[in-house]
Design a protein around this nucleic acid. Sequence first.
DNA 1: CGGCGCCTTGAACCAAGTCAAGCTCTGTGG
DNA 2: CCACAGAGCTTGACTTGGTTCAAGGCGCCG
Lengths: 226, 226
Amino acid sequence: MHTQSIAEVPSRRIRTGVRARDTLTEALFRDPELSGVVIPFSKGAEIYGEKEVAEYVYKVLSGSVRTYSVLNDGRRHIGAFYLPGDIFGVESEDEHSLSAEAITDASILLVRRHTVMDVAKRNQNVMGQLLHCTSRELRQARDHVQLLVKTAQERVASFLLEMSDRLSGETVELPMSRQDIADYLGLTIETVSRTLTQLGQKKAIELPTSRTIVLRNRGALAMLNS
Amino acid sequence: MHTQSIAEVPSRRIRTGVRARDTLTEALFRDPELSGVVIPFSKGAEIYGEKEVAEYVYKVLSGSVRTYSVLNDGRRHIGAFYLPGDIFGVESEDEHSLSAEAITDASILLVRRHTVMDVAKRNQNVMGQLLHCTSRELRQARDHVQLLVKTAQERVASFLLEMSDRLSGETVELPMSRQDIADYLGLTIETVSRTLTQLGQKKAIELPTSRTIVLRNRGALAMLNS
DNA sequence: CGGCGCCTTGAACCAAGTCAAGCTCTGTGG
DNA sequence: CCACAGAGCTTGACTTGGTTCAAGGCGCCG
């Protein structure tokens, strides 16, 4: 359920294909046949819930998003982080398998799922992009699996390298909290914190502020990355 | 690289759609346009290697298969097990992201990847099945991620329930070794062994032989399953 | 019957978790 | 403009679940 209903918030209908400047990564929503609605979500707002019917497909225009599930013992597990340009919520099942929340204030483009599907049926190119999109998620999920069999240092190093790649810069402004990172890496918040401190002591990274991380020695991190 | 080349082994060309008895789960290869070749692999034989060009798509007819990768420190990580009826090796990239090996003697149906792709382009139904197939893999990968943040007991219990579901019976004949299970669950062989012993002591399972496991108390296992 | 894989069990050790305290921002109201 | 509250982060001391190392058992095949 959207905490902000579509009717309540200012939004503008756009033709996704005709946005003048599109530096964003995913090609899928560039197709002129796919129109959508832009919705702002404030920090912490739920975008959709686990087991909810998957009515839309989503693209991050600004801000960042986490998908997660809560285990029966109360622990939260984060499936992925989505940054501007990323598409999320693509499911082949009818319901979402994870919940999604805005990590920061974010503006999200929503396109009706059945619109995408209908276009995909006619337009081979869109179908190909959809398949590509799913299999990128698959690759990420497999990478995530490999993360979780490593040591704490390796996990944190891999995470930093991943973020640096996706935000393309040596200085990484993390949108997420230590708790988010911990739940993504399958560690505790204390272990994440300690490990970052250790990486700082090793001169592999610098921590000007707790959310700003400068990669000083990519090689050293990559070494840990396995 | 196939350790047994296609030319060397007895095989018969079949029209996958016209097999009289098809109790096997995946619909994809039932399409009459998709013809393939059946190849036998002996226990331990490599079916394809990581980073190898993905020339075929595979379906297990009998026996079982594991996909895996070897980390730089020598540890092996198993991505998935495939049982009769399962399709594997579907990649949207051009190369396989994991290696595949026969766990037991197995007969595998191979269909050329570009054949599948070509048919999928014309046949909406086949494309849908392909998408479905990829997203089932995605769901499995996400389940696998969730496995790896649990305790040893939970992991082993989940594994047994998964196997019991897929082999549909309370008595599970495991095709894989303790080492395979350990590498799948991100544990050591000793921990897997100890945990099975513990589950036996709790009367949740019985172990008539080391490869035969009888689920005595599904509820108790499901409790651990989170 | 003997050898070899595979599996189990025990004991010591260690990486990460837990519990607890204190620090550092940031925003808010007096 | 400062004081204070609260959330988020770090650090320390102790505990623990799982690994490591080592030995021995079981079952299968030649």
